[in-house]
Amino acid sequence: MIAKLSDYIDNNLDEAMYMTVKNHASTCPQCTIFLKMLQRTIDLCKYLETRPLSESFSQKLSKKSWKTL
């Protein structure tokens, strides 16, 4: 069951397998918890903070003479 959980979350399973996983998860508390932790792991990655470029590097890129390369 664990092997299918990412595909289940990403909706990458065919309908029959999707229903198999869904029905199992609805009756298996451990799988439900595991699924929530895996989903939260994905969400935490999605919302990781980003860092700005340093002003000096950004200026270096914008001042680069792309036209003459």
Binding site: I2, Q30, C31, I33, F34, K36, M37, R40, L44, Y47
Partner: peptide, 17 residues
């Protein structure tokens, strides 16, 4: 992975992000 240890959803997975 020890599924038997999963008694309840941990707070980090149940609280708002």
């Amino acid at each position: 992975i020890d599924m038997n240890k999963l008694a309840e959803t941990p707070r980090w997975a149940s609280q708002p992000l």
